[in-house]
Design a protein around this nucleic acid. Sequence first.
DNA 1: GGCCCATATCGATGTTTGTCAATATAGCGC
DNA 2: GCGCTATATTGACAAACATCGATATGGGCC
Lengths: 120, 120
Amino acid sequence: MATEAKVINTGAACCGIEPGSIHEADAAQDGALVDAATRFKALSDETRLRIVRTMVRSKHELCECNIVPLFGLSQSTISYHLKVLREAGIVECEKRGLWAYYRVNTRALMGAVKTLAELA
Amino acid sequence: MATEAKVINTGAACCGIEPGSIHEADAAQDGALVDAATRFKALSDETRLRIVRTMVRSKHELCECNIVPLFGLSQSTISYHLKVLREAGIVECEKRGLWAYYRVNTRALMGAVKTLAELA
DNA sequence: GGCCCATATCGATGTTTGTCAATATAGCGC
DNA sequence: GCGCTATATTGACAAACATCGATATGGGCC
C-alpha cells in the first residue's frame, strides 16, 4: 500500500499521453490521504451515516441508549459502529455516570469536507 | 437495512434526554443517504483515493495504461478499482480505440462534498 | 457489600472486499 | 483472416467487516 510511486519514465507513450504530465504522490501528503480514507470508510456504512445524521439533526449530544432503539440492531452492533466512528475521529464520546454521550466532531467532518473539496 | 425508524416513544428517558428531541430519518432523504454511503465507500480505499488524486493533479484525462504502473498492483486490480469508481459515479470513462480514458466527474465529487458539508 | 443497569468486549459466523493469475473481449494493423 | 495489444471479466483465496449472543466492566443505589 504505502510508499513508492515515482518514476513513470517507462518511455513509451502507448496511448497519446506524455508521461511527464502524470502527477503521482509527493508521498508528503500521504498522511492526509490515509486519514481521509479512514474517515470515508467510517462514513461508508449506511447505519453509521444514519447515526451521524441523527446526531446532527438532534441539536445536542445523544446518549447511546437513545441511539440503540433507532435502528433495529443489537446493542453490541451499535456500540461497534460508535467505536468505528470514534476511532475515525468523527464523533466524540463523554461518559457521565452510567451513560455515554456522543456528539459529532464538526472539526473532523470539516476536515473531510476540505480534503474532498481539494480533489474536486 | 432500509426503511423504518419512527417512534421512539419508549417513554423512559433513562438518561437525561427527552425522546422528543431525537430526529431520525424522514426516510424521504434515505436515497440520498444510500448514494452518499456508496460514494464514500468508493473513496474509502487508499488506492482509489490515490487514483482520484492522480487524475485531478494531472490536468487532463488519464489512460488506464498510465495508471497501472503507478501503484505496484496488477492490471486486473486497477481495472477493478476503476470499475468501483465508475459505478459510484466518481469517474467517467471513454473508450477510444484500444484505450480507456478516465477523468474525474467533478459534479459527483462536488455532490459528495455537499452531502458531507450538510452533516457538518 | 450486593444488585441492577448501560456500555464495552469477546467469539463465532456469514458476507463483502482486495488481490492475483488466467482467460475473454475487442480494436488495430497486417 | 491472424497476431498483437489494452482492457474487462472470471475464479480463487485471504483478510476485513457487520452482525449476533454471551460475557465482562464499571457506575449507582440500596
